[in-house]
Design a protein around this nucleic acid. Structure first.
Length: 488
RNA sequence: GGUCCUGUGGCCGAGUGGCUAGGCUGAGCUCUGCAAAAGCUCCUACUGCGGUUCGAAUCCGCACGGGACCUCCA
């Protein structure tokens, strides 16, 4: 840990020096997916961003407990505490049990996360697995006087809460402004205040996913799970809470209110929010129907896609923008990422067989420091990548003989290139077919080609190269001989 | 309407007031039997108008454009 790490905190709207409550331990909670449908690329961006955060904290030596939940109950269609349960609706549509929906999309989510090479969280708790904890928490909030029950449904009393704590803290908004933005309560409403939200919801007879509670059969509201599970695994106050920006105004605002009302402490020290992935400048979202499924991207099966893009290309594409900026999705941008990523990987492969000299023509130590500085500045991965490309330039130059590197610097270069590319950015080479059999076979073919070249039979040597190219095996002739790589 | 964010070269995308971000694309050159790869060079931008300043893409104001949230969404 050379320099201090700075994190942009949504609470204060500034970059703050990161100081964990109990170093070297760090507690981090990230809002995970609601598993009632496939994750789309926008969802993935958030999880890749927090994977970067998790990886870098670990890289710095922190012992991180990373909790990311799976929402598998209690999420209604609207946030007015009425309407259909998302899982029940989907289950009806697919004619299966709600828990089959949960299982199906949880597995799909994990598969995508693996392809994108995100590290699994330390704990991945589900809402249905923590009903007791949620009920206990609601009881405490009731006991503290910040909630009330109506016909088996328990509501959070926002106005009462606001008398003691600032409710609109996270979005810097006043309660009056918030109320002005909501509709009038009708005669059939059970809630007292327009902003009140449900902690526990009375289950109608046809509702399958239901649990007994002090207020009768029902199910938890959407927001309470995160409060209950984060405090259970990370404590009443913990270091980092993350999620997409779209959760900031409602979900996270309510989370803070619930936790504060229950424990009488601010739950989170650093709030982090990732920005949206956009398509043609508009947010990618499920309801807008402009979402890309990761699978469509990896196979190219989508009308807006020119071709398939590999998972690492997609990850690299995401890392090329800062997590707090919007990132616009386009074929051109993805193609650029594909090329850049492949160049970085093929250049990295040269690192193993680099000749060393008595001195270095570039300042390797300084470059390493710049990499740390980039990440310490609120996880600025695009800047880090710019520095890694500088590293790639040096590797190529040394390889070509126009620059030199000392053996000591080569060790440093290897160490941080590997560390940042693979451990921090979580990239991995996708040319995995180079096993022993391939080495031998391609080697044999190339030796035949060399014989043809030696007798100036270029028709033959070009034909071999052409055929290998068709198999995506790329040939590079140089003074030292011929090398090959798999070009996907 | 309310609360905010944002406007950078062909495309994507960083930028802490002064010194070329970076990637991709395009053009030229070097290397080379030809390719490919790599290297070098070039195309050097900051929505507009004011203001602060010795100096602004960077700070302030106004205008215009784009977006997000205030209804479910990472």
């Amino acid at each position: 840990m050379t320099e201090p790490l700075f994190i942009y905190n949504t609470l204060t709207r500034t970059k703050e020096k990161f100081e964990p409550l109990h170093p070297p331990l760090v507690g981090m909670y990230v809002c995970g997916p609601t598993v009632y449908s496939d994750v789309h690329l926008g969802n993935c961006r958030t999880f890749v961003s927090f994977d970067l955060v998790y990886r870098y904290l670990c890289f710095l030596g922190y012992k991180v407990r990373y909790v990311r939940n799976i929402t598998d109950a209690g999420h209604l269609e609207g946030d007015r505490d009425e309407g259909d349960d998302k899982f029940a609706k989907k289950a009806k549509l697919e004619q299966v049990e709600p828990m089959e929906i949960v299982q199906k999309y949880t597995l799909g989510f994990h598969e995508v996360m693996q392809l994108l090479n995100t590290r699994p969280p330390s704990i991945e708790p589900t809402a249905t697995g923590h009903i007791c904890e949620q009920i206990e928490m609601i009881k405490q909030i009731l006991a503290n006087g910040y909630a009330y029950e109506v016909n088996g449904t328990v509501y959070f009393d926002v106005e009462k809460y606001n008398q003691k704590y600032p409710y609109g803290l996270l979005t810097n908004r006043q309660l009056e402004d918030l109320i002005a933005g909501t509709r009038e309560l009708g005669g059939q409403d059970e809630k007292k205040g327009r902003l009140d939200f449900a902690l526990w919801i009375h289950a109608k007879p046809e509702h399958v996913m239901r649990w007994p509670s002090p207020w009768g059969w029902g199910f938890p509201g959407w927001h309470i799970e995160c409060s209950a599970m984060s405090s259970k695994y990370l404590g009443d106050t913990f270091d980092i809470h993350g999620g997409g920006m779209d959760l900031q105004a409602t979900h996270h605002t309510n989370e803070i209110a619930q936790s504060q009302a229950c424990h009488q402490k601010a739950p989170v020290r650093y709030w982090m929010h990732t920005n949206m992935l956009t398509v043609n400048g508009t947010r990618m979202s499920k309801s807008a129907g402009n979402g890309f499924l990761p699978g469509e991207l990896f196979t190219g099966a989508h009308p807006l896609l020119d071709k398939a893009y590999s998972p690492m290309t997609v990850r690299f594409f995401m890392l090329q923008s800062h997590y707090r900026s919007t990132l616009d999705f386009s074929n051109e941008a993805l193609k650029a990422s594909e090329k850049g990523f492949q160049r970085l990987m093929s250049t990295y492969a040269l690192l193993e067989n680099l000749r060393t000299g008595s001195s270095s023509s570039s300042n390797i130590k300084e470059l390493e420091e710049k990499c740390y500085a980039a990440m310490n500045d609120d996880f600025n991965s695009p800047i880090l990548l710019a520095h890694l490309f500088e590293g790639a330039r040096i590797i190529q130059a040394v390889h070509a003989g126009s620059e030199t590197i000392s053996s000591e610097d080569l060790v440093t270069l290897k160490k941080f290139m590997k560390g940042f590319l693979f451990d921090v950015l979580g990239l991995r080479s996708e040319a995995t077919l180079s096993n022993e059999l391939m080495e031998g076979t391609v080697g044999l073919v190339l030796s035949l080609r060399k014989e043809a070249k030696d007798r100036k039979d270029f028709a033959q040597s070009d034909k071999i190269r052409e055929e290998l190219n068709k198999l995506h095996i790329e040939i590079k002739d140089s003074k030292d001989g011929t090398s090959w790589s798999i070009n996907q």
